[in-house]
């Protein structure tokens, strides 16, 4: 059974409809990517999963309906969201940001070990531990956003354009860590990306959305070989 099942998902901002009934699935333990151009509805899809926009249609997580629930409750089910714009608490320290990620957890001693684990993944964050998070560079804030989400011990990680605005070397590093997290900690990942080439290398399954509709889906390898995708999104 799929971990996440979405059927006929619609969403709108006021009178502007953004998602016109999209359906997709995410297998437990997998990395699935949602590709699409600017304004296709990628970010809105993630926001809809977290109850951050009003939606119609069905969203099931582990078999349970979660559509229409409050964001806080969805998070408590184990869905961590690295939002568009990173969502840093700019006036708090790096460490406080990370601790907030574990806010809903009750296992205090394990939170401490997880904190150290994040510092092992991202040594830069350890150096910046007591620094105000707003003073971190874009790349460091992205690392912070990813590790804050992981502090929840999520079953499903939603990533909104982790490559946005970062140097290529850093992007590769973050993608590598996501692969590790997926393999070692069995965290399922739903990745929204504009950098289609990297996303298709990482993911097992891909969906392509255009103006709020799924236009193509399949195993990442197959999508990569698709003539139209290659020309429009991979650029060769």
């Amino acid at each position: 059974m799929a971990l996440l099942e979405v059927a006929g998902l619609r969403a709108a901002y006021g009178p502007t409809r953004v998602l016109h009934g999209i359906s997709f699935e995410l297998a437990e333990g997998s990395i699935t990517t949602v590709l699409g151009a600017n304004g296709a509805g990628k970010t809105t899809t993630l926001r809809a999963l977290c109850g951050m926009v009003r939606t119609e249609g069905e969203i099931r997580f582990g078999g349970r309906r979660i559509d229409g629930r409050a964001t806080e409750d969805i998070v408590r089910l184990g869905i961590a969201h690295v939002p568009d714009g990173r969502g840093t608490f700019v006036n708090l320290t790096t460490e406080e940001n990370l601790r907030l990620g574990a806010y809903t957890r009750k296992d205090r001693p394990e939170v401490e070990t997880d904190l150290e684990r994040m510092f092992a993944y991202f040594p830069r964050l350890k150096e910046r531990r007591a620094q105000q998070a707003g003073t971190l560079s874009g790349g460091e804030q992205q690392m912070l956003a990813v590790s804050r989400a992981l502090m929840l011990k999520p079953t499903l990680l939603l990533l909104d354009e982790p490559s946005f605005g970062l140097a290529p070397l850093l992007v590769r590093e973050i993608f590598e860590i996501m692969r590790t997290i997926n393999q070692r900690e069995r965290v399922s990942i739903l990745l929204v990306e504009q950098n289609a080439a990297m996303a298709l290398d990482l993911a097992e399954h891909a969906y392509l959305i255009e103006t709020g509709r799924v236009v193509l889906s399949g195993p990442a390898d197959a999508i990569k070989r698709d003539e139209a995708v290659r020309r429009s999104y991979l650029g060769y």
Binding site: V75, F89, Y103, T104, L152
Partner: peptide, 11 residues
């Protein structure tokens, strides 16, 4: 400070 992010960590 940041209500949207706060909701995303379950506050």
């Amino acid at each position: 400070q940041n209500p949207a992010s706060a909701k995303l960590v379950g506050i």
